[in-house]
Write a protein that binds this DNA or RNA. Sequence first.
DNA 1: CCCCAGCGTTGACCTGAATCATTTCGGCAC
DNA 2: GTGCCGAAATGATTCAGGTCAACGCTGGGG
Lengths: 250, 250
Amino acid sequence: MTAHVFDIKGLKTSCQNCSLAELCLPLGLDQVDVDRLDEIVRRARPMNAGDHLFRTGDAFRSLYAVRAGSVKVYSLDADGEEQILGFHLPGELLGMDAISGKAHACSAKVLETTSVCEIPFERLQELSLRLPSLQSQLFRLLSQEIIHDEAMLLVLGKKPAEERLATFLLSLSERFHRRGFSATEFNLSMSRHDIGNYLGLAVETVSRLFRRFQDDGLLEVQRKHILITDLPRLRAMVHMCDHAEQGTAH
Amino acid sequence: MTAHVFDIKGLKTSCQNCSLAELCLPLGLDQVDVDRLDEIVRRARPMNAGDHLFRTGDAFRSLYAVRAGSVKVYSLDADGEEQILGFHLPGELLGMDAISGKAHACSAKVLETTSVCEIPFERLQELSLRLPSLQSQLFRLLSQEIIHDEAMLLVLGKKPAEERLATFLLSLSERFHRRGFSATEFNLSMSRHDIGNYLGLAVETVSRLFRRFQDDGLLEVQRKHILITDLPRLRAMVHMCDHAEQGTAH
DNA sequence: CCCCAGCGTTGACCTGAATCATTTCGGCAC
DNA sequence: GTGCCGAAATGATTCAGGTCAACGCTGGGG
């Protein structure tokens, strides 16, 4: 009986049985390889809203994968101004920007009750020397992070406020959808302030845009709860050729 | 005699003897490993201003390293609007954002007479399975690209025009310096239009800022020629804790 | 149950940078 | 030299979005 329970627990906490495997590191690995990966992954107890996964200056040791919940990653400039670099949903990897240094250059703060897997980078690197498909997947994930950031550069560099918020909402929509949730109804785990910060807009502007979108019949907004009522039109607002927001993204 | 000439040519075109090795892929590799890398690197004849290294949609096969000259990387959004993602100087790698896909999502255009090394990615990946230090260096370079883009997100998201241009000039200054050129005197290989596009500003604003900087005694500008006359003050304008613009950057 | 703090909303106003319209410059062909 | 063309500079005007200042929820603690 007890043994049985242990088995179930064992199953629950392996990459093998993780519903996020297709979005996360294990993508493209075969059974055996996933088992090897499994051996080095550490699964931590859930964290509470406001907890930090790591902070600027902390020694870099591991990458992290979100299992449930959400995480915001931000850096602080000289004046202590915060710039949010991304929001991470389940199945997304974070910490990759620290690989080239000894310490984290950003901080990662949990937005709600969240559990993450910790993947010691040294060991991951060793392992990926022996598992070509793992190495390959790592390269892909790093590259996707670059793609995401580049898409964001376009948004911040050229797009007006309206399109920024639309892009943001669509990104969330797609990502929720890919995780098996509704593409049209979800809760924002971040504050208006965070959204504004991320999109390079003032909080007030974000507020006004939510109202406008609602008035235009695109959304129904109730605080953190979002219902997209006209997805096609929201897409049309962004109409960019949709060079897909794929995996690791924010 | 002829043989001798061939020898010299051979030496000139190896990573081994490339003055950029310390900025480029070979960093951290020992002699033997560099030789292996050397075998897969293809050195192309110089290209002319305006030529494309690759375009959006081209099949992804290789990464490229700039040997001499400069390259601008840009993407086009739905409306055909160009967004410049970076400028690459000698020793910098480009094309890394295409790793996760089959095709390039951006285009790379040469700004002046430029020569590049082409590194077939398939072979690089195979090789890096056998050479831990190469794998490691690749991870580092990808990570640095992410760091660069994140730094740019801060600039575009929060900084006023003045600070954007200052940041840009300082980045160039540092990068030229690291390559053994003057940190205070250099030529811009890109147009005002490109600078504005990259920094999310109108051309006119860039023009006015150059004038203002000159009037303030920070610079002497003469078309493409820049002489920084007060580097400390330029740095002060940016004063961010300088979480260094390291390697691959733009 | 009520109070308070923090988030969110709303409105009035201001400003930095975009846009528009010329003009000037510098390189190049003839 | 002269004329031409694209890049750059400059000035006038406009406007998107920021800032400032109240105000209104709402949810947690006493």
